[in-house]
C-alpha cells in the first residue's frame, strides 16, 4: 500500500473539504441556515477567475483577486436579494431559497460558459513534487493547500477572537435579539458572514479546480463532502471542521484504496456511525434545549 501517497493526498483533499466546510459553517454559525448554494457560488466565482484569465488574459493573481472580490459581492448579493426579503422565514424556507439560488447560479453559469469541461491551472502545479522524507512525496499543489488552509484558519481564529466584527458575529449567533439591543446591526453581520463564507468557498474551489476539472457541476460532490465534514466536525467549531475534513479525506483514500467500489459512500457511513454516538459531531457541544 502506498501509504505516504494516500496520506498526503487524503489530507490535501480533506483540507480542501475542510476549507470549503468552513464556508458552510460560517453561515450556519450566524443564521442556522445550511447554504446549499455554497458549492455553486464558489463554482461561479472560479468561473469568473477563469474568464478573466482566459478571455482577458490577465495574470493569475489578478484574476484570483478579482474572483475573490466578486465572491464577496456575490455573497452579499445573495443575502441581500434572496434571504433578507423573506418575512418571518422558517429555517426550511431559507434552505429552499438557497436551493433556488443554487439552481439559478448553476443555470446562469452553464448558460454563460457552456457545459464543456475547462482546464484551469494555478501556479501551484500538482506535477512539481518534493520528496520531504524518503517515501513521502508531496506535490506543490498539496503544499499550497496545507499552507493556505493554515493561514485561513489562523486568520479566522484571530478574526473571531480579536476583531469587532468577529465578536459581533459570535454575539449574533448566540442571541440575535440581544445582539440587536446591544447595538449590533445584525443585518450587516449576516451580509458580512455571507461575503466571508463566499470568499473562503471561492478559495477552496480554486484549489480544487486545479486538481480536478472546471465545469459547472464541479462543486456538487465536494459540497456534499464539505457539508458532511462540517457536520462531522460539529458545525460550530472552526478547527473541528478542518479536522472533520481531514478525517473525511483520509477515510475516502484509505478505504477507497482497499474497497474502491464503495469509496463514494464509506465516508458518509462512518459519519452516520459517529453521529449515532456523538449526535452533535466530534467537536460540537451538545446543545440541551431548555423549556
Amino acid at each position: 500500500m502506498p501509504f505516504g501517497h494516500l496520506l498526503i493526498e487524503g489530507l490535501a483533499m480533506g483540507a480542501c473539504y475542510g476549507l470549503f466546510g468552513l464556508a458552510v459553517v460560517i453561515i450556519y454559525k450566524t443564521s442556522e441556515v445550511v447554504n446549499f448554494a455554497a458549492g455553486d457560488m464558489a463554482m461561479f466565482s472560479t468561473f469568473v477567475a477563469f474568464h478573466v484569465l482566459a478571455v482577458y488574459g490577465y495574470p493569475f493573481w489578478i484574476a484570483f483577486v478579482m474572483s475573490l472580490v466578486f465572491a464577496g459581492l456575490l455573497g452579499v448579493f445573495v443575502e441581500f436579494f434572496f434571504l433578507r426579503p423573506a418575512k418571518n422565514p422558517t429555517i426550511l424556507g431559507l434552505i429552499v431559497i438557497t436551493i433556488g439560488a443554487q439552481l439559478l447560479l448553476a443555470g446562469v453559469a452553464s448558460w454563460k460558459w457552456g457545459a464543456e469541461q475547462q482546464a484551469f491551472s494555478i501556479p501551484f502545479s500538482y506535477q512539481v513534487t518534493y520528496e520531504i522524507i524518503p517515501g513521502l512525496v508531496i506535490s506543490q499543489w498539496a503544499l499550497a493547500v496545507f499552507i493556505i488552509s493554515a493561514v485561513i484558519m489562523a486568520f479566522l481564529y484571530f478574526f473571531f477572537k480579536h476583531t469587532k466584527m468577529g465578536t459581533a458575529m459570535r454575539a449574533t449567533q448566540q442571541n440575535k435579539h440581544a445582539a440587536k439591543i446591544m447595538g449590533i446591526r445584525t443585518n450587516r453581520v449576516f451580509a458580512f458572514a455571507w461575503a466571508l463564507s463566499s470568499v473562503i468557498g471561492a478559495t477552496a474551489a480554486t484549489l480544487m479546480s486545479a486538481k480536478t476539472i472546471l465545469d459547472p457541476q464541479f462543486m456538487m460532490e465536494p459540497f456534499l463532502r464539505a457539508f458532511a465534514a462540517a457536520v462531522l466536525g460539529g458545525l460550530m467549531s472552526i478547527p473541528g471542521v478542518l479536522i472533520g475534513g481531514g478525517i473525511m479525506g483520509l477515510i475516502e483514500n484509505f478505504f477507497g484504496y482497499a474497497w474502491p467500489a464503495w469509496k463514494p459512500i464509506t465516508a458518509f457511513v462512518v459519519i452516520v456511525l459517529v453521529l449515532c454516538i456523538r449526535p452533535s459531531g466530534l467537536f460540537g457541544k451538545h446543545y440541551v434545549k431548555k423549556v
Partner: peptide, 15 residues
C-alpha cells in the same frame, strides 16, 4: 471501478 460523479481519484490510481 469509478463512479461517474467522483472527482478525487487518487486512491484508484494508487491501486
Amino acid at each position: 471501478p469509478v463512479e461517474p460523479i467522483e472527482r478525487d481519484l487518487s486512491s484508484q490510481v494508487a491501486r
